Computed example of a mutant assay.
Amino acid sequence: MTGVLTHLNAQGEANMVDVTDKAVTQRQATAQGYIRMSPQTLTMITQGEHKKGDVFAVARIAGIQAAKKCGELIPLCHPLMLTKVQVDFTPEPAHSRVKVTSLCKLAGQTGVEMEALTAVSVACLTLFDMCKAIDPEMTIEGIAVLTKSGGKTGNWERAQSC
């Protein structure tokens, strides 16, 4: 574990970190998570046979929207002017799951890890919501930051796959 808790002031009170004097740099983060489901549900959504339509398209939009609203959802998180949000889905039939990945980018004074995590989380939640009537036993798992770049600490990459 590295770093210090920056969301506490000298009195131990929660506060928003002041990034006014930080340099504007290109920042990027990727995250991933999984939604495990029955093989039948996975087949239904990958073949476009769900009665609600293209669940991946809806979940993609939800993930992008969630990244843009991260500062409203997470206390003390800065509202950011994202320049790129991408949400992708990779069906993994051998594991009866869908891998959800996100990429968030900006030129700014603070990182975008929370936005990437929020995009993945809400995309997974949207898939769950759209499929819960046919598969209530789905699980969401393994949500994690994979990479980050930019800022004072530079580049970071998860040592092992989730």
Rank of each mutant, 00 (worst) to 15 (best):
T2E: 13
H7S: 08
H7P: 11
H7D: 10
A10F: 06
E13C: 08
M16P: 02
D21N: 14
D21M: 01
A23I: 01
V24C: 07
T25A: 09
T25Y: 09
T25W: 09
Q26C: 02
R27V: 03
R27S: 06
A29H: 07
Q32K: 04
G33I: 00
Y34Q: 07
R36M: 02
T41C: 15
L42C: 05
L42T: 06
T43H: 10
H50A: 15
K52R: 12
D54R: 00
R60E: 15
A62W: 02
G63A: 04
I64S: 08
A67I: 03
K68D: 06
C70S: 15
E72G: 13
E72N: 15
L73E: 10
I74P: 01
L76N: 11
L76E: 12
C77G: 10
L80R: 08
V85Y: 00
V87M: 08
V87H: 07
P91N: 10
P91W: 09
P93C: 04
P93E: 03
H95M: 09
S96W: 08
S96N: 15
R97H: 00
K99A: 10
T101F: 01
C104Q: 02
C104M: 02
A107S: 15
Q109C: 09
T110S: 14
T110W: 02
M114A: 12
E115Y: 00
T118N: 12
A119F: 05
A119V: 06
V120S: 02
V122F: 12
D129I: 05
K132W: 04
A133M: 12
I134S: 12
D135A: 12
D135V: 10
P136C: 13
E137C: 14
I140A: 11
I140C: 11
I143S: 07
V145R: 14
L146A: 01
L146F: 03
T147V: 08
S149P: 00
G150H: 03
G150C: 09
K152M: 13
N155H: 14
E157H: 12
R158N: 09
S161C: 04
C162W: 14
